[in-house]
Design a protein around this nucleic acid. Sequence first.
DNA 1: CGTGAACTTGAGACTATTCAAAGAGTGTGG
DNA 2: CCACACTCTTTGAATAGTCTCAAGTTCACG
Lengths: 243, 243
Amino acid sequence: MRQTSRSTERLHAFCRRVTATSRNASGLDLSEALKGTRRYSSDQPIWSEAARANDIYIVDQGCAYNFLILSSGRRYIGDVFGPGAICNWRRSDSSDAQLNINFKAGTQISALDFNIFHEVLSESHLLNNALRRMEVARELRRSQRTRNLIAQPATVRVINLLLDLEDEWSHSLQHDGWVPLPLTQEEMGDLLGLTQVHVNRVVRQLERDRCIRRRRGYFCILDRNRFADQIDYQWYSDGRRRR
Amino acid sequence: MRQTSRSTERLHAFCRRVTATSRNASGLDLSEALKGTRRYSSDQPIWSEAARANDIYIVDQGCAYNFLILSSGRRYIGDVFGPGAICNWRRSDSSDAQLNINFKAGTQISALDFNIFHEVLSESHLLNNALRRMEVARELRRSQRTRNLIAQPATVRVINLLLDLEDEWSHSLQHDGWVPLPLTQEEMGDLLGLTQVHVNRVVRQLERDRCIRRRRGYFCILDRNRFADQIDYQWYSDGRRRR
DNA sequence: CGTGAACTTGAGACTATTCAAAGAGTGTGG
DNA sequence: CCACACTCTTTGAATAGTCTCAAGTTCACG
């Protein structure tokens, strides 16, 4: 019992996110699987070759992303994980396996034991459903973004990313509209298939057009619905009411 | 028994593909699920809204692709399905659900009943495994292509597509090196996030550089390994020996 | 043949990248 | 507290990549 409360305390962001997804997730207990907590004071890449196979990482605070260095030398970033997200696990984990992970400076994570996690998962209908919804939402969001990254110009790509980031952080926000922006413009570029310089120009233009506001490490979308209409953006996560 | 042989006859391409994936798939019997066969003499789009929910389509001959019309008016094509492929089903089918399907002219398909298919699937360990491998291979191939489409220039994108197409048709080829190219250049463009005109220029350049040869409806990659090295291409399908 | 769809080619416009340099913010050590 | 190093952001100019528009060609098919 004591164990449980320590666990949920540590996995606070995760529980918040699960709760936002399933109406009633109070019975949640991952304490058995929790191996430890860790905080990174500077960026920490975890290479896929490394023996990370038996740990599942959950972001408590901060942010992580998975990535790959292409043969051209370009870095490709696949997805970004905010508080409460599981970085390196999906039910049918085929395509993520090859990706490395980077924990951004200031990020705190919890590590879960892979086997125990699966055990708990197989026993808890509740957790199982909640995770499935989280997975589906992320997958849909990702495939929406992918479409725009392949077929749309830079401005649309950037707007899509900003909406995605807001969505990813929606579970851990005070609702003043300011969203953490833990990525550098270079990282945004690697996520969007653009150069850092071009990302900068697009972002500045959006600011000049009064679509967004910015301050160090945060941004704020001034008219979310206009943005969404403009690029035909869909929200998939349960945590957010559909406008 | 008679039923079975008629079924496997009709689902010939599918069985070939499954067999290439699993060593021994002779016990395969989907005859109960088979609802019928259909041939399209001209392009036939199936809109996702339509009541197609209870049919699973398998390509017998020809080719299909899934697509979406973006708000910008651009058509986005997600994936291409050759003989033996299942067009509109994945185990965790979240992101495909919204996509429409187009059957190209000359394509023949078999329709399976959704519920019976799942019944058969749950009873046949063999089929289950084979399908899982096919899914994983397609998913990996798709995510590889996605990376290149987001982060790489046009030539790399086109080469990746050509290798993917060769892979998709590898189960139904006579091995003279000529691969069917059932897509128009406009469709290739919509798949690659390029215009038809630019696809044309890139393809012509590849031909001029003696990387590929072309003839009506077919292409031939002259040095597959050079191509693969050039863009760091990985083969994932079991049907093909890894070089 | 004539028709239409797909492919080819050129010219000019636009988008995004590269290279280069300067500015702004943060953290560190003296 | 300042000076310094460092990373991130901002801006400009030149170049490369891709798109648009428009016209012409080829080919299958009725």
